[in-house]
Amino acid sequence: MEKPLILVTNDDGITAPGLRNLIQVMKEIGEVVVVAPDSPQSGMGHAITVDNTLYSSKVVVDKEKGAPLEYSCSGTPADCVKLALQELLDRRPNIVVSGINHGSNSSINVIYSGTMSAAIEAGIEGIPAIGFSLCDYSWNADFSGCHKAIKKITCEALEQGLPKGTVLNVNIPKTDGKSPKGIKICRQARANWKEKFDKRISPNGKEYYWLTGEFELLDKGEDTDIHALRNGFVSVVPTQFDLTAHHTIHQLNNWNLNE
């Protein structure tokens, strides 16, 4: 039987340790092709390149026997998926996986995530997709404790499929190489960032700003991704890209808009 074709991408760049770990896990499952940004693209959300040229080239990052075909791309994570599907792959992938991100994409962070936007781009095309993130921002993070959960979730998605219009946002607690306690299906916790700008003056006298902030959890529920992560569990949030607030349509239809 033909092995499943797995497209692997990320937002931390093609040389990121998280991506290299994800490739190793996916090689145990199927045929892997990598299309990833040539430089870090964290926080890009669903940005795409429309007013500039887009470049891609084959690269060799892993020189081991059986290393997958890899392409670097000058664009965003969403660009990588678009380019892979339209130009670089010779057949449609069975699944797209993005990550492993260096840092959490739980709760409101999903809005800004390049990792998840790559998965969403695949989902828009009707391809099962998963974004994986480890709650450790260190470039030298220990990803070994992630492997078992990532393989299990990916195999289940391949076997069971995903509901139409849905991708998975998977976050893994920092365990320093140990396995998490388990896997929980969750909802996205309500939270926000209390942001501020650190205003500074450059050597030539110009003002510039650094964005800073603190994460503010507004949700005490025990069925959320944040609760699962804080208790040592992997969180799996089914995420939809239809942003319609369906529950408000009836209320808005009562507005006097046509009088």
Results as ranks from 00 to 15, higher is better:
Lys196Asn: 10
Lys181Arg: 15
Leu162Arg: 01
Arg91Asn: 06
Gly43Cys: 10
Gln86Ile: 02
Phe233Ile: 00
Ile172Thr: 02
Gln160Trp: 01
Lys220Phe: 09
Ala84Pro: 02
Leu218Cys: 10
Ser106Thr: 01
Ser179Asn: 13
Phe197Cys: 03
Asp223Ser: 08
Gln188Trp: 00
Asn253Ala: 12
Ser133Phe: 00
Pro128Val: 11
Trp255His: 11
Ala67Asp: 08
Asp62Tyr: 07
Tyr71Glu: 08
Ala157Thr: 11
Ala16Ser: 14
Ile172Ala: 04
Thr212Lys: 06
Gly221Val: 07
Ser144Val: 05
Ala129Thr: 07
Ser106His: 11
Ile226Cys: 04
Leu7Asp: 06
Asn94Gly: 12
Leu243Ile: 14
Thr244Lys: 10
His250Ala: 15
His247Ile: 08
Glu156Ile: 15
Leu88His: 03
Thr175Gly: 00
Ser106Arg: 07
Ala245Asp: 13
Pro173Val: 12
Asn171Pro: 00
Gly145Asn: 07
Asp223Ala: 13
Asp62Glu: 06
Ser179Val: 13
Glu222Phe: 04
Val34Phe: 05
His102Thr: 04
Gly75Ala: 02
Ser98Ile: 03
Ala191Thr: 14
Ile124Asp: 01
Leu89Asp: 06
Leu243Phe: 13
Gly161Ser: 03
Phe215Ala: 11
Val60Pro: 00
His46Asn: 15
Val35Ser: 03
Gln160Asn: 14
Ile201Thr: 15
Tyr112Thr: 07
Asp11Cys: 09
Asp51Ala: 05
Val234Lys: 13
Ala36Gln: 03
Gly45Tyr: 04
Ala122Asn: 09
Gln240Pro: 02
Asn253Phe: 10
Pro4Thr: 14
Met116Ala: 14
Asp242Lys: 02
Lys220Val: 12
Ala36Cys: 05
Gly161Phe: 01
Ala122Glu: 05
Thr115Gly: 12
Ala191Ile: 08
Ala84Tyr: 04
Trp210Leu: 15
Leu89Gly: 10
Ala149Arg: 01
Asp198Cys: 04
Ile95Thr: 12
Met116Cys: 11
Asp79Tyr: 01
Ser98Thr: 14
Gly205Val: 02
Val96Asp: 04
Gly126Tyr: 01
Ser202Leu: 10
Tyr208Ile: 10
Val236His: 00
Gly30His: 03
Pro238Asn: 11
Ala118Ile: 10
Asn140Ser: 10
Asp11Ser: 14
Ala245Asn: 14
Ile111Val: 14
Ala78Asn: 01
Gly232Ala: 14
Pro40Gln: 07
Tyr71Asn: 09
Thr15Gln: 06
Trp139Phe: 11
Gly103Asn: 04
Asn105His: 06
Leu89Pro: 08
Asp142Arg: 01
Gly232Thr: 13
Glu87Arg: 11
Val170Gln: 00
Gln188Ser: 13
Tyr137Gln: 14
Pro40Asp: 09
Val59Thr: 05
Arg92Ile: 03
His247Thr: 08
Asn204Ala: 06
Leu54Gln: 08
Phe241Gly: 09
